[in-house]
Amino acid sequence: MASEYHSSGEYIKHHLQNLTYGQHVDGSWGFAHGAAEAKAMGFWAINVDSMLFSIGLGILFLFLFRLAARKATVGVPTGLQNFVEWVIEFIDNSVRGSFSHQNALVAPLALTVFMWVFLMNLMDLIPVDWLPYAATMAGVPHLKAVPSTDPNVTFGMSLSIFFLVLYYSVKMKGAGGFFSELAFQPFPKFLFPVNLLLEGVGLIAKPISLALRLFGNMYAGEMIFILIALMFGGSWILALFGGALQWAWAVFHILIITLQAFIFMTLTIVYLDMAHAEHH
């Protein structure tokens, strides 16, 4: 399919472009064609593909789990309930291991983070050309099937978690307590501007690193899939080699997507635990 593009650069750019809906420079509303147009739309534009896929996957997750929850019996669990209970016990153990306070929000939050991120990452295993090609057939110019390769998605989650961290920090320690935690350590009190700078950077780094880690891993993985897919445009030997590489990278990627979902969840729990803790 790469042969349909004028250059491999164009192919890569096309695959990395979200389907952005917004107001064009000339004032009309519509989908952006290319990265420059999407950028020109400014902040008040929306990546339709990211939204649709992420919401769809989230609803899939909640639908399956809600189904199991409604039919949850105390007796011998079967099928779906077995799987759901396995996931929930895994999350519950993780939360018990890392979170040492009482908060009914944390475990469901961790479950949502894990399953949602996992499903969004899982889209990466669908061969890179299938969905964009189908979308092009249907007349949609761009399509990025993996929501977690869109920084808007990862930052959307990490910023929400960051606000939760701020909320619980203030709720648990009081505004003064939270401020003193930021200002009066690690150095003595009279150096509080230095402390504030250090701790402030540390605080801000949490959501940014959380989002960038997931985004970076998924983006890089997607990029490698795209580069491998470029081989299919070459000779049949190259295509065969590409097929083998794609298979190998996909197998390795199963590990990465699970690990990234787990890391995102664990860090969420740890950050919230730190927000609840009285002292570092």
């Binding site: 979200n18 952005t20 917004g22 990265a35 999407a38 950028k39 739309m41 400014g42 902040f43 008040w44 534009a45 929306i46 990546n47 990211s50 939204m51 992420s54 919401i55 989230g58 997750f61 909640l62 789990f65 809600r66 929850a69 929930i88 009914a104 929000l105 475990a107 469901p108 939050l109 479950l111 949502t112 949602w116 869109d150 920084p151 808007n152 998605v153 930052f155 959307g156 989650m157 910023l159 929400s160």
Partner: peptide
């Protein structure tokens, strides 16, 4: 990296999902 309103949409979606999970699943 191109930030736009998707960020807000994702945050709202995320909060709704967490709320649903906390209320009806967990």
């Amino acid at each position: 990296m191109n930030f736009n309103a998707t960020l807000i949409g994702q945050s709202i979606t995320f909060i709704l999902f967490v709320w649903f999970c906390m209320k009806f699943v967990w």
